[in-house]
Design a binder for these strands. Structure first.
Length: 425
RNA sequence: GGAGAGGUGGCAGAGUGGUCGAAUGCGCCGGUUUGCUAAACCGGUGAGGGCUUAUAAGGUCCUCCAGGGGUUCGAAUCCCCUCCUCUCCGCCA
């Protein structure tokens, strides 16, 4: 979330940003209510002060009669305070509801536009899209021929959107993880496997909405836990409420987790096969930085994503996400979109965001500079290293051969133990 | 799942109704001493927010002792609920 004081002092800017972000948040009402809340706050504090003074005087009272008199005075003051406090709580609840709907500010260079059609292509990968001299299959056809997936069994066990990976697909999943973690390890990331469940306040702190009609999140009945949609959630929560020594920043983590998404309302649209599923495995990068370093860290994460996909010989483009497509917490976001011959178009395979202090404010992630007074909010960033399901699509579709085999990219061969995936006889 | 113990400042750890935002130690900052370093000694040192104000310094007030609720003029301290941690037992990959 944004700083409340900042919103008050920059209401016009915040409003304009909401328009650019395609976000519905009544900033005017926020300002009105927050102004009112501040006035009430001052009154409550003043009453508290008076009541505190009275309390202190009781210990020093010279006789019982005086004590009783002071007690009565104290009671009256507390009563008055409680009335005001009730008003204050009511206001605060409404303010909070608007507050969480206000998105992060936007990087000045981010393209302004209401949706993903306004995303700006900023780069291409090293590998150019192939021209096929045969009709390329899509990943579903390929995986069935290679006996790598069982969607029907997935549906039987858990419903539409679930699947079993089998055989070479499993080896690929493991190889992709090992490949990504290996590269990140060399870049100073600490690998972690993370909880696949998280408390709802951690979800909310990272900007996810655990309940409600449009939620993407599976929640666990009779608990305040949800299945995570990405390791970004537990990794952000990792330092919630902590104050870090500035010398320890940046902290670079890479988390391996399962990701669970309800994909509510997404049926029928680009949902074939593995593209949009309820569960997948992902290697995720996460960074905590000093505020002045987060822009550079975003470029670093993007560069790593490019290197990962260049290393798999997969063609892609990089887009600078338009303001209306950024989501709540991101200040700036780059997506890598891989060329998917089966779809005949680019499809998102990674996403990296600089969330500045938006998540840190809610999660309470601060840092302290040695020798200085006070603490400051850290910046948080996240980026996909490899989301297995979509990476599989791009990998299989781009590396398929006329004879139905798939060539394993050089970078994975050590982990795969083979150079070519053969169809079953 | 059962039984017990506990959650206090960057860390360790006192504190069972008022003078406690909180002893003491460590750490950290400043100083004295010192050829340099260390040690020793002296002093300082929690966070968030409001008001004042030049978004300074200073002053002042409020809040914060896991979280929420209650008792009380007054709660770190008493009561209730929740969460978490540890120990033992049971179960188990």
């Amino acid at each position: 979330m944004l700083d409340r004081k900042f919103i008050l002092e920059n209401a016009a800017l915040v409003k304009a940003n909401c328009v650019n972000r395609n976000a519905q948040a009544d900033v005017d009402r926020f300002v009105a209510l927050e102004t009112q809340r501040r006035e009430l706050q001052v009154q409550v504090e003043d009453l508290n002060r008076q009541a505190n003074d009275v309390s202190k005087s009781i210990g020093k009272a010279k006789d019982a009669a005086e004590r009783e008199q002071h007690k009565e005075q104290g009671r009256r003051l507390r009563e008055k305070t409680n009335q005001l406090r009730e008003q204050l709580d009511g206001l605060a609840a409404e303010i909070d509801a608007i507050h969480r709907a206000i998105p992060n500010l936007s990087h000045p260079a981010a393209p302004i536009g209401e949706d993903d059609t306004k995303n700006r292509e900023v780069a291409r990968g090293k590998t150019a899209p192939r021209t096929f001299d045969f009709r390329p299959l899509d990943h579903v056809e390929l995986m069935e021929k290679l006996d790598m997936v069982d969607f029907e069994a997935g549906a039987r066990v858990a419903g539409h959107g679930f699947y079993f990976l089998k055989g070479d697909a499993v080896l690929l999943e493991l190889a992709l993880q090992r490949y990504a973690v290996g590269m990140l390890l060399a870049e100073g990331f600490t690998p972690m496997t993370t909880p696949d469940l998280a408390r709802n306040d951690v979800l909310e702190g990272t900007g996810y909405i655990p309940r409600g009609p449009e939620t993407q999140i599976y929640s666990i009945e009779d608990s305040d836990l949800s299945l995570v949609a990405t390791a970004e959630i537990p990794l952000g929560g990792l330092l919630a409420g902590q104050t870090i020594d500035a010398a320890e920043l940046p902290i670079k983590l890479c988390g391996i987790s399962h990701c669970f998404r309800t994909e509510a309302g997404a049926h029928g649209r680009a949902t074939r096969g593995l593209y949009r599923v309820h569960q997948f495995t992902k290697v995720e990068m996460f960074a905590f930085t000093l505020p002045e370093d987060s822009d550079a860290m975003l470029e670093h994460l993007r560069e790593l994503e490019c290197r990962l996909f260049d290393g798999l010989d997969i063609p892609y483009r990089v887009v600078d996400t338009a303001t209306g497509d950024l989501g709540g917490p991101a200040y700036r976001k780059y997506d890598l979109e891989a060329w998917m011959p089966g779809r005949g178009e680019f499809g998102e395979v990674t996403s990296t965001s600089n969330c500045t202090d938006y998540q840190a404010r809610r999660l309470g992630i601060r840092y302290r500079v040695k020798g200085e007074k006070g603490t400051h909010l850290a910046h948080t960033l996240n980026g996909t290293a490899i989301a297995i399901s979509r990476a599989l699509i791009a990998l299989l579709e781009n590396h398929q051969q006329a004879d139905g085999t798939v060539v394993v990219p050089e970078a994975l061969r050590a982990w795969m133990g083979k150079e070519v995936l053969q169809p079953c006889p």
